[in-house]
Write a protein that binds this DNA or RNA. Structure first.
Length: 202
DNA sequence: AATTTGTGCAACCGCCCTTCG
DNA sequence: CCGAAGGGCGGTTGCACAAAT
């Protein structure tokens, strides 16, 4: 049995949002708060899919968004976190206040990937391209779901961790996990200091 | 100046997970 | 316990603008 569509596609607008639509969404959320995305468009007087409203709010209209270019520090943190989590953009975004998963994902695909490649680093494995051809790196990243089954409750999670050198701990939080990974030495030593500071903020 | 190619980013799509009746 | 609904996520697309020819 298929699922019902999230909205009546025949009666919804698509494509770029207009200023009027943005304003309707902002006004509605100011008055009623986030949530109930499916019913929101109707209540707010928008001819949009609920998912589309949610995306627009989270990625563009939220007042706490940073916007603007990524700093070198953010850039390096993204690389580091990606080496740990892989394409878990929401997890990475959780560590960068004011940035959204979509923004980070776009930034990764357009800037960081290219930058790493130009330095001879495989953006998937975070190892030098020659090396990663022969030795696949951290399969743990390919199965983050099994390690972190619930991103929402991320700070509460306990997890098994292990470094490449074989050291392992148990019962650590993700923040601890990050610090431990930072201690594992691969390619991004120059970032570690900054990350250690940043990640303690959780 | 006109056309082509490349780049960046907002938005959509479809699947998965969680919640709730 | 089961199934439907809602929400969240990652991958991908398409458009607007910039740079190159």
């Amino acid at each position: 049995m298929g699922r019902s569509p999230c909205c009546e596609k025949a009666h919804t607008n698509k494509g770029a949002w207009t200023k009027e639509e943005d304003q309707l969404l902002i006004d509605y959320i100011r008055n009623n708060g986030e949530g109930s995305w499916r019913s929101l468009p109707k209540s707010a007087g928008l001819l949009r899919c609920g998912k589309s409203c949610r995306l627009r709010w989270i990625n563009y209209l939220r007042p706490d968004l940073k916007r603007g270019n990524f700093t070198d520090g953010e850039d390096q943190i993204i690389v580091k976190l990606h080496s740990i989590f892989g394409n878990k953009w929401s997890l990475i975004a959780g560590k960068l206040p004011g940035r959204t998963d979509n923004e980070i994902k776009n930034y990764w695909n357009t800037h960081v990937k290219r930058k790493l490649l130009s330095h001879g680093i495989d953006p998937k494995t975070h190892r030098s391209i020659n090396e990663s051809k022969t030795t696949p790196f951290h399969t743990r990243n390919e199965d983050v779901k099994s390690t972190f089954p619930d991103h929402n409750g991320v700070s509460k999670l306990k997890t098994e961790t292990s470094c490449e050198n074989g050291a392992s701990t148990s019962g650590t939080t993700i923040d601890e996990e990050l610090r431990l990974n930072v201690e594992c030495d691969y390619s991004y030593d120059h970032v570690d200091k900054e990350l250690n500071l940043d990640l303690t903020l959780g």
